[in-house]
Amino acid sequence: MIRTENLHKSFGDNEVLKGISTEFYPGKTNLIIGRSGAGKTVLLKCLVGLMHPTSGAIFYDDTQFSKLNRRQVKEMRKQVGMLFQGSALFDSLTVEENVRFPLDMFTNMTRKEKQNKVNQTLERVELEGVNDLFPSETSGGMQKRVGIARAIVMNPKFLFCDEPNSGLDPKTAILIDKLILSITHEHKMTTVINTHDMNSVMEIGDNIVLLHKGKLAWRGNKAEVLNSDNMILQNFIFASPFLQRLRKNTIENQQ
């Protein structure tokens, strides 16, 4: 589990996170949602340690992240995987070399063991026969899957995804969502996803955290989204007249 306590982050006079206290649970897909500029990316970067909070604490299980020394942070990071918005695959390496990179860097596995592990992982994300392609030779959806494969190849306890659906067509986006959901449940990982894709919210939102102007505005799950009377949530999720009508009809049908 990941827990934040009264997390603040400022850039000069601009306070982006204003006292976020929340929890992200293991074996669940935890979504951070909110409008652009709400502080989602900053929160995610604080959680993974790419940014340091101005004040407050982040706990990975019972370990306070900011109290770890450099070596401990390095060890902790071996339990963390991350999928980036642009996949962040190394252009000069093939798909296989990208996925193998953490194994090459941090394990003493033999060449054959690494090869098997890479193949297994690529199979898990439904990518076979693309080992020798370079990232530029693959589609956006494939790149996301390679990114997921690289993130999970070390069997992390914590998986972070920064807008995994951005730039993908709706069908591929759903496939990526389902993949993340199944991997999360399978490995009992604590998965934290930063998104503003409404399909994701309604499909895989086991635990949803809504940020608004740097503050925690709402917390719940996908089932609670429809019936919540939180105006910030409703204005965000059901922003268009079409979605508002859809929500109204769904609630009427439920009654």
Binding site: G49, E75, R77, A88
Partner: peptide, 14 residues
């Protein structure tokens, strides 16, 4: 800019 450095940092690479 392409977040390759961030990706390596998160893996634990110096």
């Amino acid at each position: 800019q392409k977040e390759h450095i961030d990706a390596m940092e998160i893996m634990g690479v110096n």
